[in-house]
Nucleic acid binder design. Structure first.
Lengths: 314, 314
DNA sequence: GGTTTCGGATAAGATATACTTAAGTGAGAT
DNA sequence: ATCTCACTTAAGTATATCTTATCCGAAACC
């Protein structure tokens, strides 16, 4: 009748048995014989001073004590298993799981990945493209690329891109749009995935920064910024293009940015990982590679006039 | 390098060692020799394939793998320990932990407890008087007396009191207050702890039910209903007294309720415990005793005209 | 500067724990 | 009535775990 924890193997046996509601199946799961499992349960019941199962002839059912024990036991072993996986992941230098938003994944990471894979064939990359904020431990993520302002406490965080955004379009379309004022007649492509920024860095902000009197027109709205860029690439309109998503297209001339003025925000793309994880070989390799790639981007058009969206808030 | 859980005793040794940041202290906690603990940690590190501690000469510190493992391990063992305590509590027929609001505890439970203790000397009672909703598992509560409407799923719930409330005062004060209209001149004692009820059962509701044109005056406000009753007992004013809190005072004449009209609400006092727990001997004894006590109360003044607060909502 | 002390590591033997095989039991299924 | 299934019991065995005893290195102390 000790108040300390009972033998843990017996507890684990109970958890498996209660989950399956069958001693035989639990024995299978734990790779032991049913006899061993039966003995474990019996020993646990002795420790507790009362039965955990009611033995019916073809089945077992939980007693009230069993019902009280099961949820916490399942939760406890679940937490242990997850922690163990997390610890194992630390020693694993062959895989690297990265999470980033869909737009960044599509327009920045994916086109460049081949280069990283060639430079580091020993690292197996996994991607999780979602805007949902993931938990490093729970979701078994090594590295996150996030767009935002503040770095969380306890995380290693490094700004990787000085982002700016400016109107972009195909060269053909650009021939009909000579001045910012001409944008009033053009199809403006809107993006919804940066609305969480305050102040917003949208067409309204750019129009104000450019000193245009009129408010921007409505137009097609896209839930992901990369889709708006795709629409612009197809000649479907003018997008307020982000450097990170359009660098390649600007470089090979698929898009042009005829007006020098560009918007910035306080938010930046950051490389984020748990503190200390930046020294793991594959994380270090990935960070070095990203910095190399972004350094090239930072050199692009460094003299462009930048206006912070916060300074033109309505 | 198995992906299954490592030996659990070794994991527990790690958790204790990391918590104390000392193998020797951990060995003390687990009642084993330092040598045994050292061996456990070593075996765990072999399972993991990398060290969990960095051995400095007078101290140890966690490696990154250790830091990844510790929080989940602590959480896991904590959950197991709590579940085990919960299961042990099921078999314990000698203690009974009850939670109730402060007013109900002071005015209903406490005065009657002596009777229960006499009838069941073998049961050790514990009380937790708080308005905060407690969790049966987490807070190791057997029974809750709650005032509210809906019974939660998965809980045994039984209404124990058909509550009503009506103006009450000392007999001396009553001599100056002959009709409900006279309440306009009296000091009204207000209570804040039923404001979560919708519609509220307060002086405003009673005035509307009584057909009084004027709204009730302001007056002293009490955060707990029992304090308002105490103030009324001291002759300090008129309280909208709840039967449950004033039954004794009405019975021995310390308070009188001169006006027949009483308010009811959809909410009632309920006896709540986890499903199945109502059959545990001490819980059953407590419930039987409560029902016996409340049956007596239900017989008090059964012909009083009742108005539901919901029917006089503004 | 030498000695002590503290905290941990290691080795060998002892013991308790957990597992397996084999035989047994009772109630529902056939 | 017999079979079968799911769990139990018993005996023997393997393995994991603990203890005692000894060793080691660095910080603390004299």
């Amino acid at each position: 009748m000790s108040d300390r924890l009972p033998p843990l193997t017996a507890l684990r046996a109970f958890e498996a048995a209660a989950r399956h509601m069958s001693f035989a199946k639990a024995a299978g799961e734990l790779n032991v014989t049913p006899a061993a499992l039966s003995f474990q349960i019996k020993s646990l019941e002795e420790h507790l001073g009362q039965p955990l199962f009611r033995r019916l002839n073809r089945a077992v059912e939980l007693t009230e004590a069993g019902r009280a024990l099961l949820p916490g036991a399942t939760e406890g072993f679940g937490a242990l298993a997850q922690a163990w996986r997390a610890a194992r992941r630390v020693g694993d230098v062959t895989t690297l799981t990265v999470t980033a938003g869909p737009a960044f994944t599509a327009k920045w990471l994916a086109p460049r990945l081949f280069g990283f894979a060639q430079a580091h064939p020993e690292i197996e990359l996994r991607f999780s493209a979602t805007l949902r904020l993931l938990d490093f431990e729970r979701d078994e993520i090594d590295v996150a690329i996030r767009f935002g302002k503040a770095a969380d406490e306890g995380l290693y965080s490094r700004t990787i891109i000085d982002e700016w955004m400016t109107p972009m379009m195909t060269p053909e379309l650009a021939e009909t749009i000579a001045t910012p004022q001409d944008l009033a007649r053009a199809v403006l492509l809107h993006q919804d995935d940066t609305v969480f920024l305050t102040p917003p860095a949208d067409w309204g902000a750019w129009f104000r920064a450019a000193g245009l009197g009129a408010a921007p027109k409505g137009g097609p709205r896209f839930s992901q910024a990369d889709h708006a860029v795709d629409a612009a690439l197809a000649g479907g309109g003018v997008v307020l293009g982000r450097l990170s998503l359009t660098y390649g297209a600007l470089h090979d001339g698929a898009l042009v940015a005829p007006f020098p003025l560009a918007l910035t925000t306080d938010a930046q793309y950051r490389f984020v990982c748990p503190k200390g994880a930046e020294d793991r070989p594959q994380v270090r390799a990935f960070l070095d590679w990203i910095l190399e790639q972004t350094a090239e981007m930072a050199d692009y058009d460094p003299d462009r006039p930048l206006v912070n969206a916060a300074d033109v808030a309505p």
